[in-house]
Structure formats: C-alpha cells, structure tokens
C-alpha cells in the first residue's frame, strides 16, 4: 500500500469511525429529549434548548474527526 492510499484510507476511517460515536450520542440525546417532551409537553422549549446544546457537544467530536480527515486529504503530504 503506498502512502497516498493509506492517506485516503485513513481519512475515510477517521470520519467514519468518528461519526459512529457522535451518531450514538445524538441519538441518545434526542431520544431522551423526545421522552421528556412527551412526558411534559409544557417544558418543550426548555428541553429543546438543552437538547440542542447536548447535540452540539456530541457533534463536536465528529467535527474533530472531520478536521482530521480533511487534514489527511488536503494538507498532509
């Protein structure tokens, strides 16, 4: 395997495996938020705000993975 192939493979693996964790996290957060909203619909606005924050923090991990794979694709020589 030459260096370029390894680079492409690494980029794909980085974002792919990184997205797994973030996806699980986002699913957990929004699932629990839906549970909470269906239990207490009058708290919908508060719960939504907390949910968005939680989703964003989960997503950050995927973003780090995306940055790594972008660096592998475009910057690393």
């Amino acid at each position: 395997m030459d260096a370029h192939a390894a680079q492409l493979l690494g980029a794909g693996l980085a974002i792919g495996l990184g997205a797994v964790g973030a996806g699980i996290g986002i699913g957990n957060v929004s699932g629990k938020a839906v549970e909470g909203i269906s239990r207490q619909p009058e708290l919908k606005n508060d719960l939504q705000q907390v949910m968005i924050l939680g989703i964003v923090f989960c997503e950050t991990v995927a973003i780090y993975a995306l940055v790594v794979s972008l660096i592998l694709l475009f910057v690393a020589k």
Binding site: V56, E59, T60, I63, Y64, L66, V67, L70
Partner: peptide, 16 residues
C-alpha cells in the same frame, strides 16, 4: 479549539 473548529469544520465541510 472546540468553538473555532466547530464553526469552521461545519461551514467548510458543508462547502465540500
């Protein structure tokens, strides 16, 4: 790091 990379990677990633 998280503030700057989150915005950058989302917008740049979106363009790509």
């Amino acid at each position: 790091i998280s503030l700057s990379f989150r915005l950058f990677a989302n917008i740049y990633g979106g363009e790509i």
